[in-house]
Design a protein around this nucleic acid. Structure first.
Lengths: 236, 236
DNA sequence: GCAAAAGTGTTGGGAGTACACCCATGA
DNA sequence: TCATGGGTGTACTCCCAACACTTTTGC
């Protein structure tokens, strides 16, 4: 707010501000998002992104993290949480003017099964049908979800974000599955291995290997310190 | 807004929502931004980004475009206007809780001199000193400006956005100056020429050349239809 | 031994860089 | 004719896609 607009709250009717979170994870080699079933009008019974009001003295990232923890039940710091965009069409909520700040979260598969707390009604759902039929989601949440998925796809190229989908320790093949699932493409395992292990700061070797799997044991890695990838991973 | 947060306005005190615009242009081979001088507390007399309250039935992009036109006095559609991010730290405005949705606008040099309308106090200022000393701007506007400049720098790589800084018709050399000024680097004129003319959809030849300049006349181009650049321009 | 998965070597093509060179105009 | 800036040609390098190959396990 600036300059010569006088501060006069009565002249600018109250606007509600909410935070909605696009939570993405990979389950059984399929990209899923966390949805809640609405228990009231409008869109009663429809699926919606988890979210809620921003509290009076709460920062926006804090509100997003709170909503995420409440719905997923996971503890500790979230693997990845970033602001996505804001949505404020005057008619996006028929009750009152609501502007929502959307966040994007990427979490490992099943950090803990979604239950407990006040989120018995939250469920993981595959994203694909939600992108093809926007009417499956309440409000403009299909658009928000689509923007979140596109952001994730784009950021896999130039950031080490794919590791946010993996457990603490993971193999190169698991990381490759992340790229393949999110991008919906196939990648050459040999070239992928060379590329990720050759990108400085992407992966830190743990020094151990997997056991009990079929085939040759794979080396284990953790996410490295790099914030951006040079050179980037390229979508085929 | 979703799920089981009951709608009860009294439980969630009013939040003011504003739109602030980072307007970037190039004047005399220096990157400038549009600033206004605040006429009231807080930060009275300090420089700030142009912006103001979102009106009750106004969409967010419409509010940003309105603010931009009010401050710059330019008519017609804006060359480029995109949402940047939202900022909502509880103490960013000492008077009340204000959440601002920041937009980024890129405009050609001096679309019309900033004057007329209600913006006699708006001025173009070089961005460089504002980035090095955040205290030169009110509120958290230095952070918003820094995010806007970084966004512009990044998007020049993979989008044809640089043309938004140019007039309707421009030469390859003028386009190259845009890259050099925004990135703060030097570029090889020969390779740059080959690259931009060889990227499909980036430039549409007008079929005429400049006259009255020193040296060989340059071919004139308009912005082409491409939305993304394949391959991208690479920062040295 | 055989299948399956991990990891390495090699090669050819395409894009980027550096720089020599030619073209067209004003003074 | 010379200086200035626009535009092209060419060789070198590096990255990446493609694919053959070796290694190490479970069955």
């Amino acid at each position: 707010m600036d300059q010569d607009d006088q501060y006069d709250p009565s002249a600018y009717p109250a606007v509600a501000v909410t935070v909605d979170v696009v939570v993405l994870t990979i389950r059984a080699d399929v990209l899923h998002t966390l949805l809640v079933r609405r228990g009231e009008q409008p869109f009663e019974g429809a699926w919606a992104l988890p979210g809620g009001f921003v509290r009076p003295d709460e920062d926006l990232p804090a509100a997003a993290e709170r909503e995420l923890i409440e719905e997923t039940g996971l503890g500790g710091p979230v693997a990845h949480l970033e602001q996505l965009a804001s949505y404020g069409a005057p008619d996006r909520d028929p009750r009152l003017r609501v502007i929502t700040v959307a966040y994007l979260a990427l979490v490992p598969a099943l950090p803990t099964p979604v239950a407990g707390g006040d989120a018995q009604h939250a469920e993981w759902r595959p994203v694909a049908p939600l992108l093809t039929d926007p009417r499956l989601l309440a409000f403009d949440h299909a658009q928000i979800l689509a923007d979140g998925v596109e952001r994730a796809r784009a950021k896999l190229e130039y950031s080490p974000l794919a590791t946010a989908f993996c457990a603490d320790e993971f193999t190169v093949a698991e990381l490759r599955r992340v790229y393949e699932v999110v991008w919906g493409t196939g990648l050459d395992p040999r070239n992928f291995h060379r590329k990720v292990t050759g990108t400085p700061g992407f992966l830190d070797p743990v020094g151990r290997v997997t056991a009990g799997e079929r085939g040759r044991p794979a080396e284990l890695f953790r996410a490295g310190p790099a914030a951006v990838l040079h050179p980037p991973m390229l979508r085929p």
